[in-house]
Design a protein around this nucleic acid. Structure first.
Lengths: 186, 186
DNA sequence: ACATTTGTTGACTGTTTAGTCAGTCTGTAT
DNA sequence: ATACAGACTGACTAAACAGTCAACAAATGT
C-alpha cells in the first residue's frame, strides 16, 4: 500500500465533507491509517497536500478524457466523445469532481501558476480553433467557447447528481444535452 | 454606521481573499473597526455569520434582478432582462458573486434548508414552465433548463471578469451570449 | 431623575491545530 | 554481518483560534 496515495484518498474524502480548513491534518492521517508525522513526510505543509491533490486529480481526469476521445472520425464526434467522457468521468468520480469545484472557487486556486492552467486547456483551445477554421463552430473567441462548454458540462453534471437517475436516463440526458450544446456553438 | 453591516462587509472581503476558515473572527472585527466581542453580539457563531452573509447577498441579488426585469412585453424579453440583470449585478458585485460561488461549492451549503433553496428558484421555474406551455422553450425538465441557464450565466461572468473588457465590449458579449443561450433552449 | 434594556468593549480561556523532532523500523547494498 | 538511507512513528509544542464574560456606555422608556 502506497501511503502517499492513502493520504490523498483520505484527504479527498474529508475535504469534500468538511472543507479544506475544516479538516485537521491529524484526522487525515487517522483516516489514512498512518501516523501524524507521515503526512508531513510526504507533504511539507497542508497547503502542499491540497495542491498536490488537485494536480493529481486534474491529470487523472484529462488522461481519462483524452484516452476515451481519441480517434474519432468527424470533428463533431471528437467534441462529443470528449463531452461524454468528461461527464462519465464526473459521474464515476463525484468526490473528485466536487473537490475540484471547491478548489477552483477557493483562494487556493491562486497557488496554481497561470501558465499551468493555460497548458491544461491548450488542447481544447486548439481543437476549438480547428472547428472555427473549418467553419463548423461559431467564430467566437475560443476562451469564451471553452468557458461556455465547461460550465454547460458542469451544469449537466450537477443536474445528473441531484436527480439520481438510472443509467439509461443518465445516458439520454447526456446525449440530448450535447445536442443542445452543439446547437449553441454551431 | 450599522456595525452589523460593517461586519458583513468586512467578512465578505476577507472570506473572498482568504476563505471561510482562513479568516479569523478577530481579523473580521478588526477590519470592520469594532471590538472582537461585538461580532458575537450580532452573530452567535462564526458559522452563523457565514450563513447570514450568504442569505443577505442572495436576497439583494434576487431583489435587483426582479426589480430590473419586471414589466417586459414578450416572454423572450422577460427572460433576456433577467439574464442581463444577473450579469450586470455580478459585474458590479464581484466580491459578492465570488463569495456565493465559494459558498455553494463548500460544505456550508448543507446548512441552507432545501426548501429555502427551492423557494428562491421557484419564480424561475414558474417562468420556464410558462415558456414551455406556450411552446416557446424546449419541453425539457425545468430544473435541467434552470441549471443550464445558471451555469451559462456563471460561465459568461467568468469570461467577462477574466477578460477585463471595456463596457461596450462587455455589453456586446452579454447580448451575443444571450442569443446563443436562447438558441439552445428554444 | 431613575430604571432597564441593548450595544459595546477587549482581556481572557480552553481547545485545537500545523508542524517538529528524536528516535525506531525496514529494506538494500556491500 | 554491517552500514546506511529512507520510511515511519507519535508524543510534543508554540501559535492561533472561536467564543466568553464582567464591566461599561448609550439609548429608551416611565
Amino acid at each position: 500500500m502506497d501511503k502517499r496515495q492513502l493520504l490523498l484518498d483520505a484527504a479527498l474524502k474529508l475535504f469534500v465533507e468538511y472543507g479544506f480548513h475544516g479538516t485537521p491534518t491529524s484526522l487525515i492521517a487517522k483516516e489514512a491509517g498512518v501516523a501524524n508525522g507521515t503526512l508531513f513526510h510526504y507533504f511539507k505543509t497542508k497547503d502542499e497536500l491540497v495542491v498536490a491533490l488537485y494536480v493529481d486529480i486534474k491529470s487523472r481526469m484529462s488522461g481519462y478524457v483524452f484516452e476515451n476521445a481519441k480517434g474519432q472520425a468527424t470533428f463533431k464526434e471528437t467534441v462529443k466523445e470528449q463531452y461524454l467522457a468528461s461527464l462519465y468521468w464526473a459521474l464515476d468520480n463525484q468526490l473528485q469532481f466536487r473537490f475540484v469545484e471547491q478548489f477552483k472557487n477557493s483562494p487556493y486556486l491562486a497557488q496554481i501558476a497561470p501558465d499551468e492552467i493555460e497548458a491544461s486547456i491548450k488542447p481544447f483551445h486548439d481543437m476549438l480553433n480547428k472547428g472555427i477554421k473549418e467553419k463548423i463552430i461559431k467564430p467566437q473567441p475560443v476562451d469564451l467557447l471553452f468557458t461556455l462548454i465547461s460550465s454547460h458540462t458542469y451544469g449537466i453534471n450537477q443536474y445528473l447528481i441531484s436527480g439520481n437517475f438510472p443509467k439509461a436516463k443518465q445516458h439520454q440526458v447526456i446525449s440530448e444535452s450535447f445536442e443542445m450544446l452543439w446547437a449553441m456553438i454551431t
